[in-house]
């Protein structure tokens, strides 16, 4: 019984650890699922951020002014005058008195369907103000300008809403970070566990390497590389799955591809790209720490 002719010149060093150990499907699956969840978290946070910044930039670029007629002035005249004044303020791109129906609509819930008679009441009018996106006028500036012209008006620059949105976005972001860290920690723990199992299963190999003069770091390296590779593969699979789900969401998001609740843009899907690398780093660190500690105890 002889083998096929062996050519030393074509010999490539085999890995010190049995290759079949690296193909543990359970480990691939667990890390893959964790990476999938991490990618979904990242996409969710990005989408929430995008939604929040969309809303707030829209809110920031406009203000609403409620004008009450004073003296003999009719509400419509007061509103028109206010619009004129506001249009002249620096940081205002446009100011437009809204039709009285808009104002009526706002108070209808309180007054019931009595629109016909509202003309007799001094219902305040609304002025929609468009603000310069780059240097928006502040509510105080607008108030001062109106007061200067003897107009009784309340300026709402939506700062209350803005604060709420910013706050909510912050909560979402930090929740995302915490979930992300938890997932990374879980992945690290799984790899640590697998490293321990791998070391126990290959104690004989480790012993031979040791007695042949291998340094602890050399041996730890074997496990580090092995699990980094496994995690990178699993991370790629998880990222691919999450990216695929993102594509589906983007497509069924309709029209311009923006779902009302979580707008996902094509570019957001790039966020899953670092996943294999991050997974590999987490796995490498976990394997290294575990292997070093256990090898030292041998």
């Amino acid at each position: 019984m002889t083998d096929a002719p062996f050519d030393p010149a074509r010999w490539r060093p085999a890995s010190f650890l049995p290759d079949e150990d690296a193909r543990d499907p359970a480990l691939l699956f667990v890390i893959g699922v964790l990476c999938f969840l991490a990618c979904l978290t990242a996409l969710g946070v990005i989408a929430a951020d995008r939604a929040a910044s969309g809303w707030s930039s829209q809110l920031r670029s406009e203000a609403t002014v409620i004008v009450r007629a004073q003296g003999g002035e009719t509400p419509d005249a007061a509103a028109a005058r206010a619009a004129e004044v506001l249009a002249g303020v620096a940081g205002v791109s446009e100011a437009r008195a809204l039709e009285k129906e808009k104002a009526y609509e706002l108070i209808r819930p309180w007054l019931g369907d009595v629109a016909a008679d509202l003309d007799d009441l001094p219902v305040p009018r609304l002025v929609a103000v468009g603000l310069d996106r780059r240097k928006p006028a502040t509510a105080a500036t607008l108030s001062a300008a109106l007061k200067g012209q003897g107009l009784d008006a309340v300026v709402d620059d939506h700062s209350v809403w803005l604060k709420d949105i910013r706050h909510a976005a912050g909560v979402v972001r930090w929740t995302g970070v915490v979930i992300f860290l938890l997932i990374a920690g879980a992945a690290g723990a799984v790899v640590a566990y697998a490293t321990r199992a791998g070391l126990a299963a290959r104690r004989d190999v480790v012993e031979v390497l040791h007695l042949t003069g291998a340094e602890d770091a050399q041996i730890a390296n074997l496990f580090e590389l092995r699990f980094a590779r496994v995690a990178a593969i699993a991370g790629a699979a998880g990222a691919l799955a999450a990216g695929g789900l993102g594509v589906v969401l983007r497509l069924i998001g309709g029209g311009d591809g923006i779902t009302p609740a979580l707008p996902i843009a094509w570019i957001d899907l790039l966020a899953v790209l670092p996943c294999p690398v991050l997974a590999a780093i987490v796995a490498a660190v976990a394997a290294r720490l575990t292997a070093r500690r256990l090898i030292r105890q041998l």
Binding site: F6, P8, W11, P13, A14, F16, P18, D19, D204, V205, E207, V208, L209, L211, T212, G213, A214, Q218
Partner: peptide
């Protein structure tokens, strides 16, 4: 070694080259 301690998953060539690789 009395019990040899060969690495069963490595070829004879790889087993022999082990100390040099290490």
């Amino acid at each position: 070694f009395q019990d040899l301690l060969l690495l069963d998953h490595l070829s004879a060539f790889d087993n022999t080259a082990l100390p040099l690789r290490i």
